[in-house]
Amino acid sequence: MAAVEQQPLQTETFGQRLRAWLTRLVISQEGILLIITIIAMLVLSTQSDRFLTARNLTREAVLLFEVAMMALPMTYIIITGGIDLSVGSIFGMSAIILGFAWQDAGLPLELAIAIGILSGMIAGFVNGLFIVRVGVPPLIMTLATLALYRGMALGISQARSARGFPDWFYEVGRGDFLGLPWQIWILGAAILISAIVLARTSFGRGLYAIGNNELGARFAGIPVDRYKLIIYTFSGFMSGVAAWIFTSRVSTTRSDMGTGIELDVIAAVVLGGTDIFGGSGTIAGTVIGLILIQVLKSGLLLSGVKGDATTVMVGAVLILAILINNLVGRFRS
């Protein structure tokens, strides 16, 4: 009896819940972006029958890998109201240190890889340390280290490149695992972990609290300084890992690698709905932002625009995304 009564009630609430969930999804930033992304992909697939093939999509994912790896910590950082302009320079410096440690210092390649990633971590840690301990604004600190770390890459390498790595080194950048490129597995795991940490841990909630009201977060007992130190170090670590795998893919290290990549990273995060003033944002949004930018880029390339010129689109997307966020924010409140 009771079961019979409960049955229709439950389906109704489920229907309602589903509808509420769908409405929320559609009007949310992620939902709107997802719809735009799907439309863009459909349009592209009508333009070229090579676009929506499994082979092309995995290739696009591999191209997206480095920016995506850096966009995850950048989401954390922008949520706290900070910014990291130095990711491209850390990327270049890590790659150069990897190549230098192996080719010039004669260390085993495994150790060189570790040193490369470690140097990225240290670079990020130094950013965090100055921001937290000395009180340098993140924008200025990372602008200074944008010059400093790129300068280190130039100075250490003297503009020479490292090449001729042993075959096994290329596996991670060009090889497959269970039929998919390594990059997709690594990125997938990184996205999953980053998303869970941000959404489900007290650390993640702390980041939002810092972005909303830093002083309040301090009074609430959140270890603000330690959290900031962690996210800037994390940013350096991810740039280092990206540099290693990128070097493996392109088989050489150059000191100008990753110049201007910070623009793509920040554009993806902001397009994904993370508030540039801090306090809100999700990893899911960033992932959709990344996909949308990559789709637009390859769309432009398919229609014959030269690679360098796609930066016009990325720049415009960055400004427009914030403009729309601002307007929508004003409208919602």
């Binding site: 554009a267 400004i319 914030i322 601002n326």
Partner: peptide
């Protein structure tokens, strides 16, 4: 205008403009 009236941080506007102008020049 974007900075003063639409309240977009100058770092973001000028970062965007940096790549728009750069790309436009190459085009």
């Amino acid at each position: 205008f974007l900075v003063a009236y639409l309240r977009i941080p100058s770092i973001v506007v000028s970062l965007g403009m940096f790549s728009i102008l750069k790309g436009a020049l190459i085009l």
